[in-house]
Design a protein around this nucleic acid. Structure first.
Lengths: 214, 214
DNA sequence: CCTTTCTTGTGAAGCTTTTCACAAGGCGCC
DNA sequence: GGCGCCTTGTGAAAAGCTTCACAAGAAAGG
C-alpha cells in the first residue's frame, strides 16, 4: 500500500528523517545493504517500527537481504522533499541566529539561507558570510522577491507573531520557530516549534521531582 | 488521583512546561486566575487537554473560577523540578555552544552553566562570560568535582558517544544532545535529543513532497 | 437562602501509534 | 534444483493518547 495521501504521523516523518541521516553514515562506511534491525539500532528505535514506517510509502526492501542503502536513501530524500534545495530566510540575528546560519548540517541537507533580517539598525547592512543583513521593515516585500519558502525565526517572543504574519503574507508556508510563544497562522501554513527550555525541563522532570533542594 | 508514580507521558510533560511558560506571562500581565480554556489557547492545545494534564498530578483548580495563576505556577515548578537550580555543563563550544551558553531563558528557568569544555587547544583556557573553557580531557573528573547534573552536548557527531560515556561515568544522569547521533546510555540516564535538521525536514515534508524542482 | 452561571475533574469513548507474530519471498550453498 | 536461512511486509492485537460529555462544586447576585 504505497500511501502518499494517507495522513502520515509527525513522529513517523521524524523517524524517516533520522533514517535518512543514518543511511548517509552507512553509505560513507561503504555498506551496500542494511537490515531493518541495524537501521533501528542506529536510529534508536525498533526493527518493526522501521519496517512499518517505510511501508507507509512503499516496499523498498528485499526479503532475506534488507534494504539497498543508496536506493533507500534516494527514496527517503524524495519522500521528505529534500532532493531539491529549499530557500530559507533567517529573521533575528542574535547569537542563536548566527549559530544557525553557520550550522553545517542545514546546507548539507539542501536548506540554503538566502536572506537574513534584523530590526537592529546596528546590524542592518552588516555582512554574515555571503549575506547582508536586511532591515526587518522590508521583510514582507523582500521575502516575496527573494522567493523564500521557509523562515527560521529567532526573534524575541514579543516580535515573533508580527514577523510570522508578515512572512505568511509574503507567501511563506513553513516556519521554524525558536521564540517561546505559540504562533497563530492560517491553515496551509506549517509551524514547527523548537523549544529548548522545554527540552531541559523534560530532563529536569525525568531526573526526579525527587527534588532535593540545593 | 494525584499520581506521582504513574508513568506520565513525555508529551504531557512537554505541555506542562509550556503551561509554565504561559503562566509566567499571565503573571506579568497581572492576571490572578486563568481558565483551562485561556491556558489552552495560549499554549496551543485544548481545554480538555489542559485539565487532563493537570489532573495527572492533582486538583489545582477551583470550579467556576479556574486556576490561581501564581499557585499553579508554583505547583508546576515543583512538578517539573525547576523550583531549584540545576548545575549544567556545556561540552563543545562552537557557535551553537556559545549561543546556548548565553541563552537567557535557561538561566531564567533555573538552569545554570557551571562549566564549559572543549578539546581544541586554541579554546581551552579562554574565557566565556564568567567561565573558563576547560580541557575535554579532564571532563570526567572535572564534572564530578563540579557536581554537574546535566550536560549539554554540542560536539561533532564523532565525539558525542565518547563524551556521553565520560559524563555518565562522572555521575551525570541527564544529557541534552545536539549531535546528530543516537547516544547509548545505561538505564537511569536520560538523553533528550535536539534534532534541528529533523525539524526542518518535517517542514520540508509538510510543504508537499509535491516536489517541484527548482 | 436559592438560583444562575461558570468551570473543573474525570470516566468512558474514540482514535492513533506501536508492537507482535508470521506468511511470503529471495539468496546462496550443497 | 532443492533446502535452509534470513529478512521483509503486514494484518491483528495491544498500548497509549486525546477528545467528549457531564456531574459536581463554587461564586455571585438577588
Amino acid at each position: 500500500m504505497p500511501a502518499s495521501l494517507h495522513k502520515v504521523s509527525d513522529s513517523a516523518i521524524r523517524r524517516l528523517s533520522i533514517y535518512l541521516r543514518v543511511l548517509g553514515g552507512l553509505e560513507r562506511e561503504g555498506k551496500e545493504t542494511v537490515s531493518s534491525q541495524v537501521l533501528a539500532d542506529r536510529a534508536g528505535t525498533t526493527a518493526a517500527q522501521v519496517r512499518k514506517d517505510l511501508s507507509l510509502f512503499g516496499s523498498f526492501g528485499k526479503r532475506g537481504l534488507g534494504y539497498l542503502v543508496t536506493t533507500l536513501r534516494d527514496e527517503l530524500r524524495g519522500i521528505l522533499g529534500v532532493s531539491r534545495t529549499w530557500r530559507v530566510a533567517l529573521v533575528g540575528i542574535g547569537r542563536m541566529g548566527a549559530a544557525l546560519l553557520e550550522y553545517p548540517h542545514f546546507r548539507a541537507r539542501g536548506f540554503e539561507f538566502v536572506a537574513v533580517y534584523d530590526s537592529d539598525p546596528e546590524k542592518v547592512g552588516s555582512r554574515r558570510g555571503m549575506l547582508t543583513v536586511e532591515d526587518a521593515r522590508v521583510l514582507e516585500e523582500s521575502l516575496r522577491e527573494t522567493g523564500v519558502e521557509i523562515v527560521v525565526l529567532t526573534v524575541p517572543a514579543g516580535a515573533a507573531q508580527e514577523v510570522a504574519d508578515a512572512a505568511v503574507r509574503a507567501g511563506v508556508r513553513g516556519i521554524m520557530n525558536f521564540a517561546p510563544v505559540a504562533l497563530k497562522v492560517p491553515p496551509g501554513v506549517r509551524v514547527n516549534a523548537v523549544r529548548l527550555t522545554v527540552e531541559l525541563e523534560v530532563l529536569s522532570f525525568s531526573l526526579g521531582s525527587v527534588a532535593d533542594r540545593d
